[in-house]
Amino acid sequence: MRRFTLLLGFLFTGLGFLGSFLPVLPATPFFLLAAYFFSRSSPRLEAWVLNLPQVGPVVRDYRAGRGIPLRAKALATALALLGAFLSLLRLPHPLAQALVVGLIAYGVYFIWKKVPTKTPTGQGR
Rank of each mutant, 00 (worst) to 15 (best):
G9A: 07
L11T: 03
L33A: 09
L89F: 01
R3I: 15
P69Y: 14
I111R: 14
A84D: 00
W112L: 09
G65H: 13
I111W: 13
L89Q: 01
K114M: 13
P120T: 06
R125L: 11
P120H: 04
G102T: 02
D61I: 07
R90E: 00
P69G: 11
G14W: 03
G16R: 03
Q123E: 10
Q54N: 15
R63T: 13
F10Q: 02
G67Q: 10
A98Y: 03
G122K: 07
V58E: 09
S20K: 14
L33R: 05
L103P: 03
A80K: 01
A105D: 05
G83K: 00
K73G: 08
T13A: 04
F31T: 02
V24N: 01
F12Y: 03
L82W: 03
L11G: 01
W112T: 15
P29A: 15
P116D: 04
T121A: 12
F30A: 09
K73D: 08
K113V: 11
S42N: 08
I111M: 15
W48Q: 06
Q54S: 11
P53L: 04
A47D: 10
F21N: 10
T119D: 12
T77E: 01
G19D: 05
L22R: 08
Y36Q: 07
A47P: 03
V115D: 09
Q97G: 03
L11Y: 05
F30T: 04
A76K: 05
L7F: 06
V115P: 15
F85L: 00
R2H: 15
L52N: 07
A72R: 14
L45I: 04
V55R: 02
S41F: 07
P94I: 10
G14S: 02
V115W: 06
G16Q: 05
G19A: 09
T77C: 09
P23G: 12
W112S: 05
P43W: 09
V108F: 00
A84E: 01
A34S: 06
K113F: 14
T77Y: 06
A76E: 10
V59G: 08
L11V: 04
R60E: 11
V108R: 02
W112Q: 11
K73Q: 09
T119K: 13
G102C: 02
L32Q: 12
A34N: 04
R3E: 13
V100R: 00
L91H: 03
F37G: 08
F30W: 02
K113Q: 14
L82N: 01
Y109R: 07
F21V: 07
R125T: 14
R125N: 14
G122C: 12
L8T: 06
S20L: 11
F85H: 00
Y106F: 08
L89G: 00
L6A: 04
P94T: 07
F12Q: 06
A35D: 03
R2E: 08
A27M: 10
G124T: 10
L81D: 01
E46P: 03
M1I: 11
L8N: 02
L52W: 02
P43S: 08
A96V: 13
P23L: 04
P116T: 07
A47H: 02
G67H: 07
F38M: 02
T13D: 02
L70R: 08
L7P: 05
